[in-house]
Design a protein around this nucleic acid. Structure first.
Length: 308
DNA sequence: GATGTCGCCCCTAATGACTC
DNA sequence: GAGTCATTAGGGGCGACATC
């Protein structure tokens, strides 16, 4: 590629698109009109000979090429920003900083474990301190992010109404799968919808009352399931499934981790469950913090690379 | 240095695709 | 059918380049 004929502003457009997964919001983010960003996207597509982001019912979904491109692009932009701001670059090998993260148990299993491996390779003295969010699906208040949490990572169904001071980036899209023990007497690599409804479940319920979304989906089809065990978090579920004939519907990343360790089979859910986006949130006051930008880059890199 | 031409990028407005 | 969002079309501004 000839760098002289490449508009480097396209990298900013690409970064913004990868963060927002929406052309309108990505345009607003970098101060362009929506058609201008749409045009920038089409130029990016021509340049890289790849659609990069494709329209889906859930929004603009990055291709494999976009995923592999964003890591070096982010690194290059971070270096440029550091150079332009004339601040010394963050040295991960020398830093003793401890980052405070808010994450659910699922995020800990799917992301934090591989993140720690990378952290130990690159920044032996940097620490992580994790706290459990008060509400799993509600983003923390802007003041909390500003004062006591460096990053909040989780499934936040509605990030459109966030305070303007909160920045967000989608890390990955999670699919749901079914876990059953390999020695299950009735399940051998396949699961019909009727069988899914008739088996006893280990269910994850964050609320103390009301109906779960899987129960609502089954009800639409005139079916119901029996939750023999209800727990408030994902971490217990694979152990319950491994020790019983119960089945459980869990996020695929956690399922992959536990299936390898606990002799479990992972099966497609025989009912259409929309994927949910795992998102990282941070306060705008962290934007100029090079150490924070470095950690965000490492998290994005880990999220892209830790999918089994 | 001044002027004209060309190409690029952004804008507004219109259109198309998709979902509910 | 209405609403949302991406794409396309046409026009204007601006910079690069060639010519005088």
């Amino acid at each position: 590629m000839n760098l002289q004929s490449f508009d480097l502003n396209l990298l900013l457009a690409f970064e913004s698109l990868m963060i927002e997964r929406n052309v309108t919001r990505a345009a607003k983010r970098i101060g362009l009109s929506q058609p201008a960003l749409s045009n920038a996207l089409s130029r990016l597509r021509r340049t890289f000979d790849d659609p990069l982001l494709v329209r889906t019912p859930e929004g603009m979904s990055p291709t494999a090429a976009a995923h592999s491109l964003i890591v070096p692009v982010r690194a290059a932009l971070a270096q440029l920003r550091a150079a332009l701001e004339e601040k010394p670059a963050f040295d991960p090998t020398a830093s003793k900083r401890t980052f405070h993260l808010s994450a659910s148990d699922h995020v800990e299993i799917a992301l934090i474990a591989p993140l720690v491996t990378r952290l130990l390779e690159k920044a032996t003295r940097v620490g992580l301190r994790l706290t459990r969010p008060r509400s799993l699906f509600q983003p923390p208040a802007a003041q909390v992010l500003a004062d006591s949490i460096d990053l909040a990572i989780g499934f936040f169904p509605d990030v459109t109404g966030l305070d303007a001071s909160i920045h967000s980036e989608v890390l990955w899209e999670e699919q749901s799968v079914v876990l059953a023990r390999k020695a299950h007497p009735r399940i051998k690599g396949k699961l019909t919808l009727r069988q899914f409804a008739s088996e006893h479940h280990a269910a994850v319920f964050y609320k103390t009352e009301g109906q779960g979304f899987i129960d609502a989906l089954l009800e639409q089809k005139g079916l119901a399931r029996r939750a023999a065990v209800i727990v408030p978090h994902f971490a217990t579920v694979p152990f319950v499934v491994a020790a019983s004939d119960l089945i459980a519907t869990v996020p695929d990343r956690s399922a992959d981790v536990f299936a390898r360790q606990l002799r479990l089979q992972v099966l497609p859910v025989p009912i259409s469950i929309p994927p949910f986006r795992m998102t990282m949130l941070w306060h705008e006051r962290m934007e100029a913090d090079l150490a924070h930008a470095w950690l965000r880059g490492l998290i994005v890199e880990t999220a892209l690379g830790s999918k089994a």
